[in-house]
Lab assay of single mutants.
Amino acid sequence: MKMAVISEHLGLSWAELARELQFSVEDINRIRVENPNSLLEQSVALLNLWVIREGQNANMENLYTALQSIDRGEIVNMLE
């Protein structure tokens, strides 16, 4: 549920979040190519990849820290 809210509000910031979460330029470009027409779909794809990559370590605290690092703390505030 929280992931959906984050995806809805990320907009163009999804790529900046991807870099903050240590995704490569290739990963970011692949997300763009696979989801060409929708920032929402790109955001969802990023968060899904992050959960798959991090497994047990994919917790909201880590995601909140990354969001705050890219000056998107207002998204965190909405969810708390």
Rank of each mutant, 00 (worst) to 15 (best):
K2F: 08
K2G: 10
K2C: 07
M3Q: 09
M3T: 09
A4N: 12
A4H: 03
V5I: 06
S7V: 10
S7A: 15
S7Y: 08
E8A: 09
H9K: 11
H9F: 08
L10G: 00
L10R: 01
L10A: 01
G11A: 05
L12G: 15
L12R: 12
S13M: 05
S13L: 05
S13H: 12
S13R: 05
S13C: 04
W14N: 01
W14R: 00
W14D: 01
E16H: 11
E16R: 11
E16K: 11
L17F: 13
A18I: 02
A18N: 03
A18Q: 00
A18T: 01
A18E: 06
A18W: 01
R19D: 07
R19I: 04
E20F: 06
E20D: 04
L21Q: 01
L21F: 03
L21R: 00
Q22K: 13
Q22L: 10
Q22S: 13
F23S: 01
F23I: 13
F23N: 00
F23K: 02
F23Q: 01
S24D: 09
S24V: 02
S24Y: 01
S24A: 08
E26S: 12
E26C: 11
E26H: 11
D27C: 12
D27H: 10
D27F: 05
I28M: 06
I28H: 00
N29S: 09
N29R: 13
R30G: 08
R30F: 04
R30I: 06
R30C: 13
R30W: 06
R30N: 10
I31A: 01
I31H: 00
R32Q: 10
R32N: 06
R32M: 06
R32V: 12
R32K: 07
R32L: 11
V33S: 13
V33L: 13
E34V: 07
N35A: 07
N35H: 14
N35K: 12
N35T: 07
P36V: 03
N37W: 06
N37Q: 05
S38A: 07
S38I: 01
S38E: 04
S38N: 09
S38T: 07
S38Q: 03
L39V: 14
L39P: 14
L39T: 15
L40R: 15
L40S: 09
L40V: 13
E41R: 14
E41S: 13
E41V: 05
Q42V: 01
Q42L: 01
Q42E: 00
Q42C: 12
S43T: 02
S43L: 00
S43K: 03
V44C: 14
V44T: 15
V44F: 15
V44S: 15
V44D: 15
A45K: 10
A45F: 03
A45Q: 10
L46I: 05
L46M: 09
L46R: 00
L46Y: 03
L47C: 12
L47S: 01
L47R: 02
L47G: 04
N48P: 00
N48S: 07
L49S: 14
W50C: 03
W50S: 02
W50Q: 03
I52V: 11
R53W: 03
E54L: 04
E54Q: 10
G55I: 03
G55L: 01
Q56A: 11
Q56E: 14
Q56R: 13
N57Q: 15
N57F: 05
N57M: 11
N57W: 09
N57H: 08
N57C: 09
A58Y: 12
A58S: 11
A58P: 15
A58E: 09
N59K: 13
N59H: 06
M60T: 07
M60A: 06
M60G: 01
L63D: 02
L63V: 10
Y64V: 08
T65I: 08
T65E: 13
T65V: 10
T65L: 11
A66D: 01
A66G: 09
A66N: 04
A66P: 11
L67H: 00
L67A: 01
Q68H: 13
Q68W: 10
S69D: 12
S69C: 14
S69Y: 10
I70H: 05
I70W: 00
I70K: 02
D71L: 02
R72M: 06
R72L: 04
G73F: 07
E74N: 05
E74K: 05
I75E: 02
I75A: 00
V76F: 04
V76K: 07
V76M: 07
V76C: 12
N77D: 06
N77R: 14
M78Q: 12
L79A: 13
L79E: 06
L79F: 06
L79C: 14
E80Y: 12
E80S: 12
E80H: 12
E80I: 03
E80F: 13
